[in-house]
Design a protein around this nucleic acid. Sequence first.
DNA 1: TGCATACATCAAATATTTCTGATATGATAA
DNA 2: TTATCATATCAGAAATATTTGATGTATGCA
Lengths: 102, 102
Amino acid sequence: MLDPVKISKALSEPARYKIMLMLVNQYYREVSQCCSFTTEGVCNCEIMAEFGMIQSRVSYHMKELTEAGLVTEKPCGKWKYYIPNAETLKNYINQLGVDFKL
Amino acid sequence: MLDPVKISKALSEPARYKIMLMLVNQYYREVSQCCSFTTEGVCNCEIMAEFGMIQSRVSYHMKELTEAGLVTEKPCGKWKYYIPNAETLKNYINQLGVDFKL
DNA sequence: TGCATACATCAAATATTTCTGATATGATAA
DNA sequence: TTATCATATCAGAAATATTTGATGTATGCA
């Protein structure tokens, strides 16, 4: 099911942790920076701008986060929006509690 | 203070996660396998035996766990016992909750 | 249609982590 | 003391992860 080692690894990269923080804080806004209509989620190009990262690097990290289940992708035309997956984070925390008897 | 990225990294290695599970489940026993008296904690050689790992490999991983604050060392003669640090795990979980607004 | 934009993917380079065997340190016991 | 045992540390090898630039794919617009 949920693999706490895999999620730990996804969170263990500083750039990825920062991206997760950004997603959590900005994923719901009135007006998106890219699409001309209201939407939720943060797109690739916003992450590039925020951290000064090149496009392929952002893509790589978003794939890692998505494969760990920490992020959900929402394509929107030629853009792609990312939404943090609170369920996975909750399950991860819960699993740690069970595994380590907290 | 507490660095969630560092703790994630410590937990992101399969061998280390398994060692943490072992520590949590065995750190308090009536009779130690190594010392001739009752003690708490699991020693290096028990971890070696449990997972079939060589000594330097166990030492390496225990150092990583200790430096992340996940384990506390308790020297006992020529042995060294490791005790899981529940406080760090709790703080880690708490920090994730704050950071990701759970 | 052709062009521009956004993101994905690839291969190569670089960086980092993990593993191993050798050796060092420190404690115990004869 | 000397021998032995448990653990630490080191240097090199091996394995993995990350970064980059080039190229591919798909969408939207003129």
